[in-house]
Every structure is written in C-alpha cells, then in structure tokens.
C-alpha cells in the first residue's frame, strides 16, 4: 500500500517536473493561431472589420471574440479559408455587397496643402511628403484602405481602380467568357 502510493507520487513528481521543463524550454513566442489567421488576411489594414488593422482582427478571431465574416476586402474567399483553418462554419459577409475591385489612392497634387494628416493616417506608410510640401502616394505600396480620405481637409484624394495593363491581365475563365 505504502509502496504503491510512493511509486505513484514519484511518477507524478517526475512527470510534473518534465512537463514544467518542456513548457519552459519549448515555449512558443506569440500566438501561432493568430499568426496563421493573419497570414490569410489581405493586409489592407483598412479597419473595416472595426479593428485597428489585420493583426488585431486576427488576434480577436483567435481568442474567439468575433465572427470570421468581417473582412470586406477579403470577401468570401477569405471567409472560406478561415473556416477551413479554424474548422468553423462558412458564414456570409457581415457587410452587404460584393468586395470592391482593387483600388489605389491618388492625391490631386495641385490641391494638396501639405498638412501631413493623410501621412499620419496611412497604416502602411505609403504616402510621402512633409509639412507644407506636396504629398504623393506610392501606388505600389497603397493597399486601397481609404483611411487617408476622411482626414484630408481639402478632399484632394481620389480612389481609382488599378488599371488593367498587359502586365496584370490574364485569360478569363472560358465559361465566364461566354456567359
């Protein structure tokens, strides 16, 4: 009887020590689930999900605080990918309508007063300029989040669709072509 208790107590102590050691030794920095969710999000950092960027939204999903249907630019494709990753049900997009085509912001440079408000609003540092000097958008870095539109005091920023060129064109699907 005494021996049995002793043996089990010993096993418990060894196993506990081992688990404690492993937990310390192989600790994972950050939240791997949030990382994987973040990898699926389109990184527009637009805030339409009501979080301050893609990463905070990914963390909220990982914590189970929100539904997976808030990403407007990602649309249904991202919802399906998230549903597959997290083994949740596919739900329709929270916002009505279809995701807009890719856009970029363009500053009407003759109207820009150089207030730097759009520079501070841009989540990906895609606007160049300084106080009292003209600003301009780096088109390749712009994610089309529209966050620079509200702060502009003279409304000189336009959203334009990315033009189709020989470089970004590709063949359409045959059945969509005939439809």
């Amino acid at each position: 009887m005494f021996l049995t208790v002793l043996v089990f107590a010993l096993i418990a102590v060894v196993a506990g020590a081992l688990l404690g050691f492993v937990a310390q030794r192989y600790r994972v920095e950050g939240d791997p689930v949030a990382d994987r969710i973040d990898a699926l999000l389109p990184q527009t950092q637009c805030g339409q999900c009501e979080f301050a960027g893609c990463r905070p939204y990914a963390e909220a999903i990982a914590a189970g605080e929100v539904e997976i249907n808030r990403c407007v630019p990602g649309g249904d494709a991202v919802i399906v990918e998230l549903a597959t990753l997290l083994d949740r049900d596919v739900v329709p997009l929270a916002e009505e309508g279809i995701p807009p085509p890719p856009m970029v912001a363009v500053i009407r440079e003759e109207h820009c007063i150089g207030c730097t408000k759009c520079i501070q609003a841009c989540p990906v540092d895609a606007i160049l300029g300084r106080a009292k000097r003209m600003h301009t958008v780096i088109a390749d870095e712009c994610t089309g989040c529209e966050l620079c539109l509200p702060p502009c005091p003279v409304d000189c920023i336009d959203m334009v669709t990315v033009p189709e060129t020989v470089d970004n064109w590709h063949w359409p699907r045959p059945d969509e072509l005939s439809a």
Partner: peptide, 13 residues
Amino acid sequence: KAQQARQRYEFRM
C-alpha cells in the same frame, strides 16, 4: 503584396 503590407504595417506600429 500582402506580405509587404504586413511588414510595413508592423514597422509603423
């Protein structure tokens, strides 16, 4: 492009 945007966003933060 998303990867680049993420890096720029994280750097800004």
